[in-house]
Design a protein around this nucleic acid. Structure first.
Ligand code: FES
Ligand code: FES
Lengths: 160, 160
DNA sequence: GTCAATCCTACCAACGGGGTCGGAGAAGAT
DNA sequence: ATCTTCTCCGACCCCGTTGGTAGGATTGAC
């Protein structure tokens, strides 16, 4: 599994926020009810989004969360990194202190390169590319229409 | 983490086989020693590759494993699927009986599409694309040279 | 002041990943 | 023939992470 439910629920939460305007905050309780997600768990997830300044909060009664930007300016690479930390194909890809590097244990072995590094880096590049090409606005538009038709399947993987 | 060590070790194993010719089989013991991997675990991994007919085995003394094809004809999508099962972004992507589908729990909810389906499908498409564009021959060539130079970094993510 | 909301930390069960062990065939070497 | 070296196969186990809960403290509208 590439992503955990943190990413799943977090994206759902953002889509739900994007569907409403940015004028009035939406409470987590409403979102949890709308999407059928556990409230207490959502609280922990939205904290990640807030730390990344993707949402802002209003406390107290009638409070809730708002997007800080226009959905068209929210790219999914930033969202996923906020929720999951960097997308790593393998444990040797670490993101120490917000600068992702590759701690390749087989690189300096005997004058030979690491057999898998090329593959993992390509895959990671492919994932990040697709993520950055997808905006929250697209997901909001996609979610707000009828369930998928056969005609749509072509355009799904086109990426941007 | 996108891939587990099954993929990692399995690819390493294939690269090691690809480095030797296809005439003489290589024993797992030799591969385990060369790569510093646990032998008993490799046995289970190579069984997956054999079931997918990517390698063939010779039992008894001086036995071992060989590639069944030229490394240039071995594409990584097939390899990874053999090792990990299909690459699923999320638990709702299942591959029942070798036909991958999406069991989307939010699709039929209330006339609305699933908010995350578009994103996951794009990501999965990106991964599969990169995998299928990479051949075992490339990895063998890449592994057999010096550790990565600054000049190489450009071409790593070009993918094909 | 009361209720509704965000915040925050600790806690917990279940699962899957990563790995070991012991043994049972198969085939060459002696 | 028997020994050694391999591939095969299933059961078993440790452990970190994930997904989720519990319980409270704080903030602000009414
Ligand atoms: S050890 Fe993972 S990329 Fe080299
Ligand atoms: S529930 Fe996962 S794609 Fe819809």
């Amino acid at each position: 599994m590439i992503f955990t439910t943190k990413a799943e629920y977090g994206v759902r939460l953002l889509v739900e926020l994007g569907r409403h305007g940015a004028e009035q905050p939406v409470s987590l309780k409403a979102i949890a009810a709308a999407e059928g997600l556990p409230l207490a768990y959502l609280e922990r997830i939205v904290a990640l989004l807030k730390k990344a300044e993707l949402v802002e909060s209003t406390r107290g009664a009638h409070g809730g969360y708002r997007l800080t930007r226009d959905p068209a300016d929210v790219h999914m690479d930033e969202v996923i990194i906020a929720l999951e930390g960097a997308v790593a194909p393998m444990t040797c890809f670490v993101d120490d202190t917000d600068s992702p590097r590759v701690l390749c244990s087989h690189e300096a072995d005997s004058g030979q390169g690491c057999a898998t590094k090329l593959l993992w880096m390509r895959v990671q590049g492919g994932v990040m590319e697709k993520l950055s090409q997808t905006t929250l606005a697209e997901l909001v538009a996609f979610a707000s229409r009828e369930p998928i038709t056969r005609h749509d399947r072509e355009t799904l993987t086109s990426g941007g």
